[in-house]
């Protein structure tokens, strides 16, 4: 991470747009996770997935974890791939409701379409992040001549050995070489 601070670019992710997208997905994960956790029951009902409440809540926990991971890590790439895997699980779960007994078929189809859309975004994001180069960034300025020693580095080495460290700052005698 070249630039510090929560809003700034991350090291090895010179592509700011993708990093912003990743952060957005992180917040999205947390939001969705909280909804799944708190409204597991009504979600299950609305999608015709009754009986799956606990599974939905567990997915909520997973989403929150992934979201935190994306936001907190210096490198969100593995976490975004984690989202892709999660999307697959979600799709599989939703697909289990695709039967003619389901009376919420319209809702379910909308949900499947939405998840498929987000999955596409996740894949694009993860793939772009994975392809970024990890090469060290080049210095932004040339400070090779800034030694700070007017008489040069070699004559600076040990030039202040004459300095007597005051008592309060000295190494304790206990830690000095023990002569016997």
């Amino acid at each position: 991470m070249r630039y510090e601070g929560p809003q700034s670019r991350r090291r090895g992710h010179p592509d700011e747009a993708t990093d912003t997208l990743a952060r957005g997905l992180g917040w999205f994960s947390i939001g969705l996770g909280i909804t799944e956790l708190l409204a597991g029951k009504s979600l299950a009902r609305g999608l015709g997935l009754t009986g799956q409440e606990d599974l939905i809540r567990a997915y909520g926990v997973r989403e929150i974890g992934t979201g935190l991971g994306i936001l907190a890590s210096d490198d969100p790439t593995p976490w975004i791939w984690g989202r892709v895997a999660g999307d697959a699980l979600d799709l599989a779960t939703l697909a289990s409701g695709l039967n003619n007994r389901n009376r919420q078929m319209d809702n379910l189809l909308i949900a499947i379409a939405a998840v498929a859309g987000v999955t596409a975004i996740d894949i694009i994001c993860a793939d772009t992040l994975s392809r970024e180069t990890r090469k060290p960034l080049r210095p932004l300025a040339d400070y090779q001549d800034r030694s700070g020693y007017p008489r040069g580095l070699e004559s600076a080495r040990g030039a202040a050995r004459d300095f007597a460290v005051p008592k309060g700052f000295r190494t304790t005698d206990l830690l000095r070489p023990f002569a016997g």
């Binding site: 040339d142 400070y143 580095l153 600076a156």
Partner: peptide, 8 residues
């Protein structure tokens, strides 16, 4: 880091 190297 470059400035650090310049300082030895």
């Amino acid at each position: 880091l470059e400035m650090a190297r310049a300082g030895g």
